[in-house]
């Protein structure tokens, strides 16, 4: 704990706290020492699983640690109740990867555009369906995003086109 902590060896504290808040009741507080400790626990978790996955790689004389190696290591080290949802997650990810590249690029482009026109967006368009403050950077669980993202790649185009026109 003494000395400067290398921040690039830990997950960003804001991301970690956001995930913790999903579990904790609204009135819960998190002390600074708990925040630091859980950051360290997450890095240790990644190192622990990766080391085991890498050992399997080396035994099989492969050089690249794959997602399958990570899942195998989790099961071996007792995190088998994680491995199943993660297998589904990987499967869905690979399915979404099969989408046309143009759609993915368009999605990225929209992200960039949205970033640039952030203030006008807030002022001129109030989508009631949002139940969070965009500036807080909060968003739904990955499961939800992954499921709805692939389906919503077409629908959200129009609103952003409107924003773009306004900017011009």
């Amino acid at each position: 704990m003494a000395g400067v902590r290398e921040q690039d060896q830990y997950m960003p504290i804001a991301n970690v706290i956001r995930i913790m808040r999903r579990i904790l009741p609204a009135h819960a507080k998190i002390s600074d020492d708990a925040k630091e400790t859980i950051q360290e626990c997450v890095s240790e978790y990644i190192s622990f699983i990766t080391a085991e996955a890498n050992e399997r790689c080396q035994r099989e004389q492969r050089k690249t640690v794959t997602a399958e190696d990570v899942l195998w290591a989790m099961e071996k080290l007792g995190f088998d109740n994680y491995a199943h949802p993660l297998s589904l997650y990987l499967h869905r990810y690979r399915e979404s990867e099969g989408e046309p590249a143009s759609v993915r690029r368009a999605s990225s482009a929209m992200g960039i555009n949205n970033n640039m026109v952030h203030p006008p967006y807030i002022n001129s368009h109030g989508f009631g369906m949002f139940d969070f403050d965009p500036s807080s950077q909060g968003f739904y669980r990955d499961d939800h995003n992954a499921a709805s993202g692939s389906g919503g790649f077409v629908a959200p185009f129009d609103p952003y086109a409107n924003i773009k026109r306004d900017a011009l």
């Binding site: 369906m129 139940d131 389906g151 919503g152 959200p156």
Partner: peptide, 9 residues
């Protein structure tokens, strides 16, 4: 589902 898409983007 649509809201999820918006928030994701």
């Amino acid at each position: 589902r649509q809201a999820g898409a918006y928030s994701g983007l």
